[in-house]
Nucleic acid binder design. Structure first.
Lengths: 121, 121
DNA sequence: CCAATATATGCACCACCGTTCATATGTATT
DNA sequence: AATACATATGAACGGTGGTGCATATATTGG
């Protein structure tokens, strides 16, 4: 903290959301930040699915999928309905699609930038 | 894998992106999934800032901030420019704002749902 | 009510990640 | 060239989180 930046600090400080909100935001994105959960979400883009179907699709334990579905549900990204013994999971709302789509766009854009060779520094 | 779901598995399997893409997507969101990095991004929403300013703003070590800035830069979320001894970081593009904004909307919507009491199950 | 199926959960292991400390690199000033 | 300032980096420590195993819960059929 040698050179001074009082002006900027004051300005930014007042615009920053509360720690709680920032933490909640990070926690939300943390849910998207796992390959297994991302695969589950993408699967549900197509249609609702039961737990064992997802497990078979991803070649993983039913337990692992169940654990991750719980995380997704806690974040309000998926919901479920029961039909006899089986429980079907589906996307909770359209935010999931938009958020993932935005991430996707960022990826391909940056990937394209790297291919055509953006001048760095 | 007791009851059968051949139809759904075949259908979804063909629509799923490659493992590499899904992994890249998860890795991207992983970057958003940390409170410190989220604070840094939100700070840069207002204006570009140098490393020590961010460190002072967040009350954290210069080293910690530097490490996180590297993560953000590797994900192409921020970029920097040098001006003498100090290095200013800024948002790399507008995707950052849109992605965070979408997450924000999801949060407040779900929070509102909980307040008015959505009938669950 | 017991067996079978579908899912959920608690626990433990392991890997990964964020922080700090110490130090290195880079830049300007004198 | 030497010093001071701004930032970067490497190693290590501690905590968190994803997975599998074993087991519990729930629903249906006989």
């Amino acid at each position: 903290m040698a050179h001074n930046h009082e002006e900027i600090l004051c300005k930014v400080r007042h615009e920053l959301p509360t720690d709680e909100l920032l933490c909640d935001l990070a926690d939300l994105f943390k849910v998207f930040g796992d390959t297994t959960r991302m695969k589950i979400l993408y699967s549900l883009f197509e249609s609702e699915m039961c737990v064992c179907a997802i497990a078979e699709l991803l070649g993983m334990t039913q337990s692992a999928i169940s654990h991750q579905l719980k995380v997704l549900k806690n974040a309000n990204l998926v919901a479920n309905r029961r039909e006899g013994k089986t429980i079907y999971y589906f996307l909770a709302d359209e935010h999931v699609r938009t958020i993932v789509a935005q991430g996707f766009e960022h990826l391909i854009e940056k990937h394209h930038d790297n291919r055509i060779g953006v001048i760095e520094k």
